[in-house]
Design a binder for these strands. Sequence first.
DNA 1: CCAATATTTGAACCAGTATTCAAGAATGGA
DNA 2: TCCATTCTTGAATACTGGTTCAAATATTGG
Lengths: 199, 199
Amino acid sequence: MYVSRMPRPREFEPDTVLNQAMLRFWERGYRATSIEDLVKATGVKPGSIYSAFPGGKRALFLKSLERYSTLVVPQKLGELEAPGASLAELRGYFDGLVRDLLSPEGRQGCLLVNTAIENAAEDDEAAAVVRGHLARLERCMTAALANARDLGQVRDSVDPGGSAKLLVATCQGLMVVGKANPDETVLRAIVGNAFAALA
Amino acid sequence: MYVSRMPRPREFEPDTVLNQAMLRFWERGYRATSIEDLVKATGVKPGSIYSAFPGGKRALFLKSLERYSTLVVPQKLGELEAPGASLAELRGYFDGLVRDLLSPEGRQGCLLVNTAIENAAEDDEAAAVVRGHLARLERCMTAALANARDLGQVRDSVDPGGSAKLLVATCQGLMVVGKANPDETVLRAIVGNAFAALA
DNA sequence: CCAATATTTGAACCAGTATTCAAGAATGGA
DNA sequence: TCCATTCTTGAATACTGGTTCAAATATTGG
């Protein structure tokens, strides 16, 4: 058998580069984010980035989408993904979105919404990740609406599946509106009316 | 007084270049559209483009947004902007959106939604045009809802202003969803549920 | 200290980008 | 036909993009 010698160890954490990449893609978009941006942000040189992430910028982008899904999304969804979630958790999610859109750090919106607009038409893999996210939203919103109906928190005539599809679109639209016009009155009116329709 | 001699006349129609620019920005976005693209599409050389459109690519983009607003938007809104519009025109607008999103040519969505996502955060003038468009949508939807309420086409409890804000967000969201997942069932469910909430 | 391996580094590469400019060309009045 | 004016053309500029590579470096078991 062959004995492996110790090679030179990495001087950076690939996760750090990936996190930085995710943040940059999130706030500036895919095309607007250059490798040079990541080099400046992390101090890691291009050669090292490319050897740590085979596939280059696009692979880094796709990995960023996955990381966003596993790191950021659960945090935003919060209890809405828990089995017992009902109307309060659903409402909490929308209120959180509004809060984010009105805060200086949250103006970047949602990486997956941005990706739907910027990349979905020309990048099938990116579009697939976005579709997976939309399905995830629809799934937990449907469950929450079904629970809410059982609890009498919404009208009996509410169809969980259909209303969830509408709410998914509503939260995507909320983020588009919030990006161009982060006005608290408008955003709160959108959420208020969306939920008024359920009660 | 001075007599002006006749200079060499233009060999191209600036409107043609502007229309092409609008179409390219619409389907591929601002960054992804290069001057070279426009040169290939129109046969007009860079020098001529730059002399016809002072301000370069960005000015051309802003002019494209204006052109989209005056040329494409009225066509999409159709009768919804007419004073007497009510529920039918409102519904017609949403049905038209769905039809567009499902057709091969319509997958590009809406230039102003795309701009909200790609440019609004970093370009105040572009964001202002988007805000103007959102205000325009809200205005005619509010009017249509007020008419619809007077005609008994929607519940008396419907607040035209608030519901219009929600519908504006809904149609933005419709375009995000449609771009990632152009599925007729989903899009029709969104529109159906949005209008069911008004009746 | 040497050997073997993998990483770092800095430069280089090549394609593409937006933009500018000088020289040639077209126009109609003088 | 000349002139002043503005356009066209084609090249050139200056920069940035993503990506690659050879040489230098660091590691640790032998």
